[in-house]
C-alpha cells in the first residue's frame, strides 16, 4: 500500500503528484504486480482532496499500462518499474558503491560526487539513442 502525500505548494498538479508517487513506489518495489492501489475513498479520506482527482490519476496510470481497474474490486498493479539491475545485490550497484568509495578516498565530498554523477548521467542520457530519460518524468 502507498500513502500519497500532497504538496499544495509544489506547483505540480495534484493528480500528477499521485501519478509520480505511484511510479516511485513501483520503482522502489513498494508496489508490485497484483497489489491493489488504495481506493479513491481511502485516498481522499487521508488527503482531503477531490475524489475525481484520484480517479484522473488512476486513469493516467491505466493509460500507461501500469494498473488496471477490476470493476467492484479496485485498481490493481499490472507491472513494476523496478529494475533487477538496480536491486541492492546487483553487480551494477556494487560497482557504483566501489566507485563512490574510491571517489571519497580521492578527497571528493558528497556534493562533489553528486555533481559528478549528475554530469555523467546528463552526458550519457542526452547523447545516446534509445534514450528514455524524458519519458517517465510525467510530461503534461
Amino acid at each position: 500500500m502507498v500513502d500519497f502525500r500532497i504538496d499544495r505548494r509544489s506547483g505540480v498538479a495534484t493528480y500528477l503528484q499521485i501519478v509520480q508517487q505511484t511510479k516511485q513506489a513501483l520503482r522502489l518495489g513498494l508496489l508490485v504486480p497484483g497489489d491493489r492501489l488504495p481506493t479513491a475513498k481511502q485516498v481522499v479520506e487521508a488527503t482531503a482532496i477531490n475524489p475525481n482527482t484520484v480517479l484522473k490519476a488512476y486513469r493516467e496510470l491505466e493509460r500507461e499500462g501500469l494498473v488496471a481497474p477490476r470493476p467492484g474490486l479496485g485498481t490493481f498493479v499490472l507491472r513494476t518499474l523496478a529494475h533487477e539491475e538496480a536491486a541492492p545485490d546487483s553487480p551494477l550497484r556494487a560497482e557504483l558503491a566501489a566507485w563512490a568509495a574510491r571517489a571519497r578516498q580521492a578527497g571528493l565530498d558528497r556534493d562533489d560526487v553528486t555533481a559528478l554523477v549528475a554530469a555523467v548521467v546528463d552526458e550519457e542520457f542526452t547523447a545516446g539513442p534509445g534514450d528514455a530519460a524524458g519519458k517517465d518524468k510525467g510530461n503534461l
Partner: peptide, 27 residues
Amino acid sequence: GLLMAEAAERGTTVLMSSHVVAELEDA
C-alpha cells in the same frame, strides 16, 4: 477528508461556500 470520502463512496453532490481559496482548491 470524511466529507470527500462520503462523496467518493456515495457520489454525493456537495455545494459549499468558503472564503478560504486554499481550502477549496484541493477539494
